[in-house]
Design a protein around this nucleic acid. Structure first.
Lengths: 223, 223
DNA sequence: TCCATGTGTTCAGTATACTGAACATCTGTT
DNA sequence: AACAGATGTTCAGTATACTGAACACATGGA
């Protein structure tokens, strides 16, 4: 059940307001006063609850990571295709929430210890998921295990970062169902055929068409 | 973004706890103390915030109706099939939330002014939706406009009320995707062919099979 | 009948969420 | 250099959310 704004504590309202404004304007360009105003509260409350503006950002990061982590943890219920459901999950996550997209984009564009730490946590998560995938599907021994999680993150986070410059080049919205599923499928194919699973198969090429080439130009991701 | 329990006001926590317990045990069988305990708060807060246990119930009803109303209002964005999207919406609504199902079931099983009032509001909503449908698809002049909303409500609320007795007779969960879509489709066909739209067509029978008769026994709803 | 238990409700006291006005610092401008 | 404006932060004071212990009333059993 989605919580009405008036149902949230001041602390939560501040966090939510910060997420919104940070997503819109970025952290540096958003004053603590603005956050408080957006939340309908006194600026003093930022300090009261979070110690500092930096503490507020940490709380927002914590919540964003918790959301992603929870979504990942709730995955993999049946014995279905893990990679596919992972793609579906991230598509749903980012497709549904432009604010989340904006926040991550601005945060990852920044050059600050906090941003680096955030990305580190994402990378850690990617590593974990990759291990699950390797365990489920078998892994190529020649894959670079240090970079593989980064590559995965590129495929996921790249569209977020590149949205503003990529979108004008498309004839359909990037983060709505058709484009999302298509991108997700492409990512799956790339990860499966290019990173693991292909080596130990019978060698017979799969029946899927090599790479869709109708309407959309050849899709490059995270060059 | 789903709110963490600690992010909610005492008032909201009490309301949420009440919804849960009322759904589980019903209103009468749930003490104010139990609600407070479930929310991790003092029983005195029930009075502080809602005036009485009855006031608490009113608040829960208000929220449930608000949820349904909001979902209905956010419908009909494109020029798509209104009835279909309505079916999808209610399927998503009830499928995703067993607590909501439980609450409505128990509430509508009760014999109290509050329950009657709740049902009245639902009926009012059904009337409104029916008017939209009639406006969009054309209405049969011989349809009983007083009972039609009730019939619609039966189709929607019936499965809720009958879940405990119906489920043991099925080989798949009633409120998960396959059964939900199937039921939704059947409802749509019934409402369209039986209540409006059929009269002013060319008279040619539609291509759809009359009524699915594999795996599931002939589906009766709201006898 | 008289407990025992559980209920809805009350109330004084406390913790804390919250505010308004101030201070200190940094920026860019003149 | 000196100013104006905006920022992050502090703090005393106030509002209110919240608690614990009690009351009054039911119900059911000894």
């Amino acid at each position: 059940m989605e919580a009405s704004p008036s149902d949230l504590t001041g602390r939560a309202r501040l966090r939510a307001a910060a997420l919104r404004l940070f997503a819109q304007r970025g952290f540096a360009a958003t004053s603590a006063r603005a956050v408080a105003a957006e939340a309908g509260l006194s600026p003093a409350l930022v300090i009261h609850h979070f110690g500092s503006k930096e503490g507020l950002r940490a709380a927002v990061d914590e919540q964003v990571l918790a959301r992603l982590g929870a979504a990942l943890r709730e995955l993999d219920p049946g014995g279905g295709d893990l990679l596919e459901s992972l793609g579906e999950m991230s598509a749903r996550m980012f497709g549904a929430d432009p604010v989340l997209r904006g926040y991550l984009r601005r945060a990852l564009q920044e050059d600050s210890p906090a941003s680096a730490a955030l990305f580190g946590r994402l990378l850690e998560g990617a590593r974990t998921e990759l291990e699950r995938l390797v365990a489920a599907e078998g892994g190529r021994t020649d894959a670079d295990l240090q970079w593989a999680p980064f590559q995965m993150l590129c495929l996921i986070v790249g569209p977020l970062l590149l949205e503003p410059v990529m979108q004008p080049n498309l004839d359909q919205p990037m983060f709505e169902a058709p484009a999302l599923t298509r991108r997700s499928a492409a990512n799956q194919r790339l990860l499966r055929l290019g990173l693991f699973g292909a080596d130990q198969s019978t060698g017979a090429p799969d029946t899927a068409k090599p790479a869709g080439s109708d309407s959309l130009g050849g899709g490059r991701s995270c060059g």
